[in-house]
Design a protein around this nucleic acid. Structure first.
Lengths: 242, 242
DNA sequence: CGGCAAATTGACACATCTCAAAGCCTGTGG
DNA sequence: CCACAGGCTTTGAGATGTGTCAATTTGCCG
């Protein structure tokens, strides 16, 4: 199927797609590629295509050369996410997209997207919406990093990933795969990896999660959301004419 | 003029507008309103119009009820910024928009924007771009809050505000008006207001800024950008066909 | 002049970072 | 099957960054 089923599902969770919309999505030529753990999917710079995640976990890495060189992970993307769709309107990426674990992505040419904006205003608004949801997630991360201490902050990330993955059906029960090293979690949340280790231990000690390698089981959804003060409203999972 | 000159300038700094585009912008009916310091411009919830800043400084405040109630400021907006344009595609705001100092804003009905998306694909892409730039700013704030300590973090905010304001001509020399209390700076950067006070003093002691009330003068642009490791690329100020 | 909110300062508590070392897991080669 | 190497995780201890509380000073406005 062109434009991976997960993405279509992502849209359909938020608005109705007409027959024409679905046909246009299905007709969109894409190119599937697979990336190994740690590989760079898209480098910073100008691009003429964007990609969406079909399976696995991808992230955006903002880097700053100089001394010391530093980097942070500013976004995570699960199946169905159109990772660098914003590059279609920005034309240039100021960050890299990298694979965490093994990742399959589909690439779509910007010429296709441009053609869509010329003739499919409703689809255009929905694509626009997906980048607006990305921004809402960014704001929530800012908020969390402002008001939560390390354990609660980590818990918040777990809650968000769980809701996002479960909304597209990428989890079973309360178990999900999070192929992130503690060093990478540190670059997401803005702590040292040693501190992340302590936060993970804290969540374990509180019996909120079981966490072994990249397998995370949520033992108490209530406890976790209470600690993280998590409210999924910002993910905009809800049916609404757009 | 409909759709404030600053916003047109914001777009023209980034792409060429055709006669048709300009005519459509000029024909867009807007309603100008003025808000006093601290007033809420837009409350959380569903809306049928969006607003753009004509003069003054506005911000987005994310709140969380409960005990303790907490809030953070997740975005700032200078003249020419289409503050809650994303509400056009999200339909509902998960945060408030408030006035810092006296603020003039123009409201535009979503029906107008919807009509634009039906017939003006190029303008649509440019409007989409402005929300993508918002997201890029969010990412930079995430990055800064990950890798910078308080003084450098504050310096980064000053640099960003200066570049954004000067790009639309809202500063003179190296002096700008930043009508933010230290408590509000704390809610932006995620520190306590006491710590902000110390960061301000630090920047003063280093002779990087003069800061009196809401008037900020940058004494050493080089020193400030070096401390903040500031690189304005993410603001996407550059001409590019979109 | 008085009153209030904001800015400033000091002292101490808590959160997080850095450095260093030890333990664990996994893949590889003998 | 074992030994080893390397990267990741885990732990400890001390340094630094930041938060909280309380008090003082400043600046604005009536």
């Amino acid at each position: 199927m062109a434009l991976g089923g997960y993405f279509t599902r992502f849209l359909q969770l938020r608005d109705e797609l007409s027959e024409d919309d679905l046909a246009r999505l299905a007709a969109m030529p894409t190119r599937l590629e697979t990336f190994q753990p740690g590989e760079v999917i898209v480098s910073p710079g100008p691009h003429t295509r964007s990609c969406l995640v079909v399976s696995g976990l991808a992230g955006r890495v903002t880097m700053l050369a100089g001394k010391p060189a530093v980097q942070a992970i500013t976004a995570l993307h699960v199946p169905g996410d159109f990772v660098d769709l914003h590059a279609f309107v920005l034309k240039e990426l100021d960050h890299a997209v990298v694979a965490f674990g093994r990742v399959e992505v589909e690439f779509v040419d910007h010429t296709e997207l441009a053609q869509m904006t010329e003739h499919f205003p409703h689809l255009t608004r929905l694509f626009w919406m997906t980048t607006a949801i990305d921004a809402a997630v960014h704001r929530q991360w800012l908020f969390a990093s402002s008001v939560l201490r390390s354990s609660a902050h980590l818990a918040h990330l777990i809650c968000e990933l769980y809701v996002r993955m479960s909304s597209v059906g990428a989890v079973r029960d309360y178990i999900m795969t999070v192929p992130l090293l503690q060093r990478e979690l540190a670059e997401i949340l803005g702590y040292s990896s040693i501190h992340i280790n302590r936060a993970v231990r804290d969540l374990r000690d509180r019996k909120l999660v079981r966490w072994q390698g990249s397998e995370v089981e949520i033992l108490s959804w209530d406890g976790l959301t209470r600690l993280a003060r998590f409210d999924p409203t910002y993910l905009e999972i809800g049916y609404r004419p757009r």
